[in-house]
Write a protein that binds this DNA or RNA. Structure first.
Length: 469
RNA sequence: GGCGGCAUAGCCAAGUGGUAAGGCAGAGGACUGCAAAUCCUUUAUCCCCAGUUCGAAUCUGGGUGCCGCCUCCA
């Protein structure tokens, strides 16, 4: 069973066959670091990181590259507003990016290149395009000559004529064709600039991704991903630049995530429904946000609402309960082989999990499989009065393994608050009270702990406690 | 105008020809001193119309509604 991915280039699902066996070269368009990233940006970060993890889980070595756009109009404008340099702005929001992305469980990429640190590669690529007759210079600006690249429109699935007729008025008289786009922009007063054969200036937006992705991944990438809105023109232009320069296929698979809406509307500052990931993290647990992002197929639009997130939070709690019940049972395992049915069942579910993930990364279906496993484990825990350690460990392994990809179960949490001893003492006191049927005292202790966010559950194997999410 | 997507229970969401996964919420029951957790039971004429087929949520045609890209944007 191998992976099948929906390729936007062909608009069909295709078997995934990497350029180099056992290896995946994966480039994902990263943030422009002029502000905190918003909850819509968080979707590709989470989703494509998860896809990367799944490739690794499946045995591939993955080189995962996600860039930082640290020079463009937005960067310059914001830096001017703040009265700081563009590089200071970039440093600040790269740090903020990592703070939020780390909190969301997004693993760091293999490489996180910045445009400003790759001027040599960018200038090389532009020079090559000029030499090959695919670009032209006008007064210090360099444009890509769209008409020189017959395949222009492969991703958009539209002809140059169709694209042109739809294009809104473009007033740039310097361009030969309205769809020609800037590879290099000549310096304007007060802007950061770099020397080049065409004078001082800075790169256009699209060129950095082509230059950096090929530097780290070679001239043919396996996968190039980004939000669906990047399909045109950004990715179309990347293909044109890269392929015109190298004559080779730039990326074998183009994948795009669907939009995230807020209350059924596109997020925008003017509508007032703009939500940063930072703000979302203050309101909802990170794993609930991850669960939400993975609960629908990555290509479908999803609607971020308070209710959806509360639902996701409850679902994650069910997962956590299963995990902590398992830990509790492990403290005092029995010897009966209660897992005679559980173990093969989990093996089957593991396979179904893989099948779902292999089928165009169907995380929603995969989650369904996990919950079937959760139910089976819960039933085992309930029905087997003496759950045996091997079965418990097998169940734990199942959860651990799927969670190494999805990152939604509270496996590593609940460590050291320093008050564990005190809690244990209170539990002992409560146990005594209960034995003496002094329920007012036992309930009092439970309430006191609850007020501190510590929840108690009385089980046949003793009282277990946990902290609230 | 061009390109494309979506419409499945109160809510979220899988499912591309053989009579509907999973989650959340609700109802009833079991367990419990009471809770909590857990388990059992329960809740869908798959947007409409027509067609193809022995058989369609799934294919075809036509509607209706919503959304995205074509302009910086994940």
């Amino acid at each position: 069973m191998s992976m099948v991915l929906y390729n936007d280039l062909t608009r069909t699902k295709e078997p995934f066959v990497p350029v180099r066996e056992g290896h995946v070269g994966f480039y994902s368009c990263g943030p422009t670091v002029y502000d905190f990233f918003h909850i819509g940006n968080a979707r590709p970060f989470i989703v494509f990181d998860t896809l990367r993890r799944y490739f690794e889980y499946s045995g591939y070595e993955v080189t995962y590259v996600q860039n930082f756009t640290d020079i463009d109009d937005k960067m310059i404008n914001r830096a001017n507003q703040e009265g700081i340099s563009v590089s200071e702005l970039a440093d600040r929001f790269i740090a903020e990016y990592y703070r939020d992305a780390d909190a969301l469980g997004v693993r760091r990429p293999t490489h996180a290149p910045k445009a400003t640190e790759h001027m040599a590669e960018i200038i090389d690529l532009v020079s090559t395009l000029i030499e090959k007759g695919h670009a032209y210079e006008v007064n210090g600006d360099v444009f890509f000559d769209v008409a020189s690249f017959p395949a222009y429109g492969v991703l958009a699935k539209q002809s140059l004529e169709d694209l042109q007729s739809a294009a809104r008025t473009d007033v740039n008289e310097q361009k030969r064709h309205p769809l020609d786009f800037a590879l290099w922009k000549s310096k304007k007063e007060g802007e950061p600039s770099w020397p080049s054969p065409w004078g001082e200036g800075r790169p256009g937006w699209h060129i950095e991704c082509s230059a950096m992705s090929m530097k780290y991944l070679g001239s043919t990438l396996d996968i190039h991903s980004g939000g669906t809105d990047l399909t045109f023109p950004h990715h179309e232009n990347e293909i044109a630049q890269a392929e015109a320069a190298t004559g080779k296929t730039f990326a074998k698979y183009w994948i795009h995530n669907g939009f995230l809406l807020i209350d059924r509307e596109k997020m925008s500052k003017s509508l007032g429904n703009f939500l940063t990931a930072r703000a979302a993290l203050e309101k909802f647990p990170p794993r609930a946000i991850r669960f939400f992002m993975l609960s629908a197929h990555y290509r479908s639009p999803i609607n971020f609402t308070e209710e959806s997130l509360i639902q996701a939070q409850s679902a994650v709690e069910r997962l956590d309960n299963c995990w902590s019940d398992l830990q509790h049972a492990k403290k005092n395992p029995g010897s009966k082989e209660g897992g005679a049915e559980l173990v093969p069942l989990l093996d089957g579910l593991k396979n179904r999990f893989k099948e779902a993930m292999d089928d165009d990364f169907n995380t929603a279906a995969a989650l369904g499989v996990i919950f079937e496993g959760v139910k089976a484990i819960n039933t085992f825990l309930k029905e087997s009065s003496e759950p045996d350690l091997p079965s418990l460990e097998r169940a734990e392994q199942f959860l651990r393994s799927v969670d190494s990809i999805l990152g939604i179960i509270g496996i590593e949490e609940g460590e050291a608050h320093g008050d564990e001893g005190e809690i244990e003492n209170l539990l002992k006191e409560r146990e005594t009270a209960r034995r003496e049927r002094n329920f007012s005292r036992s309930d009092e202790i439970r309430d006191t702990l609850a007020a501190r966010g510590i929840l108690l559950e009385d089980t046949p194997q003793g009282t277990k406690w946990k902290r609230r999410g």
